[in-house]
Structure formats: C-alpha cells, structure tokens
Design a protein around this nucleic acid. Structure first.
Length: 271
DNA sequence: ATGCGGACCTGTTAGC
DNA sequence: TGCTAACAGGTCCGCA
C-alpha cells in the first residue's frame, strides 16, 4: 500500500489528532510485526505527548520528551484515527490511546510494518541513518543521480527503488516515472545520460507530488486516517495495465518481472 | 562494493 | 465449487 505519497497522506491525516495530546494507554495486540514491538512501549509513552509528526522516507517519526516512536507501514499497513470505543478490527495490531477519547490504530494484514522506539537521535537510527535524499527536496538532483549511477549495471528501475539512493519511490511510482521519462525499466543505470536523469528526476518529483495532492493511490485497501480513499489510481498510466493499450500511443504495454516486482512499460514510448 | 534472490506474513485472485 | 499457485503497495539479510 504505502509509498511516499501514501505515507505522507497518513502523516498529514494523523498529525492534528496526535500532536500534543496526552497519551493514556498503549495496547499491543500482536507482539511481532516485522520486528518485535518494544514491550515497554506503554511505560515509555503513557503520560507523554508527541511534539511533532515527521516523515523521513517511508518512516513516520513521532518524538516525545523521552524518545521517538518510529512507525513503518510496510506493504499493507495503515493508520486510522478513531473513537477509542470503536471495536478493533482484524489486524489492528497496535493502538495508542489519547486523553481526548480518540486513538491511533495501526492495521497491517501482512505484518511487514514496524513499530520501534529510540531514545537517541532518530535520524541516527540504524534503519534511517543510511537513507538517501528525499525526492521532493533540493538534495535530489539530476547530478546526484547521475554521479551515483556511474559504473552501475543495475536496472534503472531497481536503482531508483533503492532507498539508499533515494527514498520513497516504490513499485507503482517507479513504473509511472520511468514511463513519463521515456526510459526502459531494464536499462543499466550507469548507461543513462545526464539529460535522461534530468527528465527522470523531474518525473519522479511530479508523480509523487501529484499523488500527494490527490491523497495517494488506493488500489485495494489503502485508506486515509479518516477512512477515505486516495484518488491517484485513476491517473496511473502503466502500473497495473499490462497488455492494455498505451494511453499515449496505443501500443500494447509490456509486463515483465524485475527484481521480483511487476514492471510495465510501453515498448514504443520507452527507449 | 554490487546485485541478486529469499525471507518475512496474510489475503485475494487466477487457473485448473 | 474447490483446491492450489501466484501475486500483492517494502526492504533487510545473506550469499555469490
């Protein structure tokens, strides 16, 4: 479910409901997600409040005076704000209860998500320290990508999906951005010109920003923290459209597997 | 260092 | 209809 736009949509959705609200309880219904959920989370959080809601890549950071809660939604995670009295749903694994009668629930059918706690600088956390630049900031430039890619034989698609290179670009938006930039997903990253990287950076930015505006992509189950869907799915040009006609030139789109992920491209538009 | 495949989990759908 | 296999938005880890 969540790539950068969906995580950002979730962050914006929960922010007004969790900021500076005293936490009164923490309920852990499933002890293990991707990693074990810290057992003393309740002790750390009750009586505290979050002073910010920050996104770094696909991580959401919620700092308190004691330490920082780190959330990751994995492949199928979602965050909902609801009345504490509402009965928990299947796969509602972790719940933060606030003094105002609302709670934040993490639902994650596949349990690839994570709930972690750190008392150190969260940006120095193992999982966060080595992340590449944010694609929507000035750090993410054609020159940066061009330099990073020299000598690399890796396919451009898996290259831009590598969070050490750039964060937030998952399978959907990698497919879309490569289509818009007219680049074949299998092209070796090291063989693309600076001109191509200029186009690619522009398209990655465009597709992510546009999706955030529309509230992300709802395929089967992504919902905002208030339960509403995102509307970017209607804008998808190639993702999920294998064997269908290209929206630009009518050629049949090809579907291949790259790094175990479904990859769709137009053999005519993408060279 | 780089790059690939497997693994972690559950649910849904396609195909026989 | 019912079983099985393949696939799904992520990404860490171990191996070549």
């Amino acid at each position: 479910m969540p790539e950068l736009p969906e995580v950002e949509t979730s962050r914006r959705g929960i922010e007004p409901h969790v900021l500076n609200r005293p936490i009164t309880d923490v309920i852990i219904r499933r002890k293990k997600l991707r990693w074990p959920v810290p057992t003393q989370l309740k002790k750390q959080l009750v009586g505290e409040h979050f002073s910010a809601a920050i996104r770094r890549g696909k991580y959401i950071l919620l700092p308190t005076d004691n330490g920082t809660l780190i959330l990751h939604l994995g492949m199928t995670g979602s965050l909902r704000i609801m009345k504490t009295s509402t009965a928990p749903a299947k796969h509602d694994h972790v719940e933060l209860v606030f003094a105002d009668g609302n709670c934040l629930r993490l639902n994650d059918p596949r349990c690839f998500g994570a709930v972690l706690w750190t008392t150190d600088d969260p940006y120095q956390h193992e999982l966060i320290r080595n992340l590449g630049p944010e694609p929507l900031t000035d750090e993410f430039t054609p020159e940066y990508l061009f330099k990073k890619s020299r000598g690399r034989k890796q396919a451009i698609k898996t290259f831009i999906m590598d969070s050490k290179i750039v964060v937030g670009v998952g399978n959907i938006y990698a497919n879309e951005a490569l289509f818009m930039a007219g680049i074949r997903p299998r092209t070796a990253a090291g063989r693309l010109s600076k001109t191509k990287y200029t186009l690619l950076v522009e398209k990655i930015r465009f597709v992510l920003a546009r999706s955030i505006e529309l509230g992300g992509t709802t395929l089967r189950d992504f919902l905002h923290s208030d339960g509403k869907p995102g509307y970017f799915a209607q804008q998808l040009l190639v993702y999920g459209r294998g064997n269908k006609p290209c929206r630009v030139c009518d050629t049949n789109l090809k579907e291949i597997r790259l790094g175990q992920r479904s990859t769709v491209y137009c053999p005519a538009c993408q060279k």
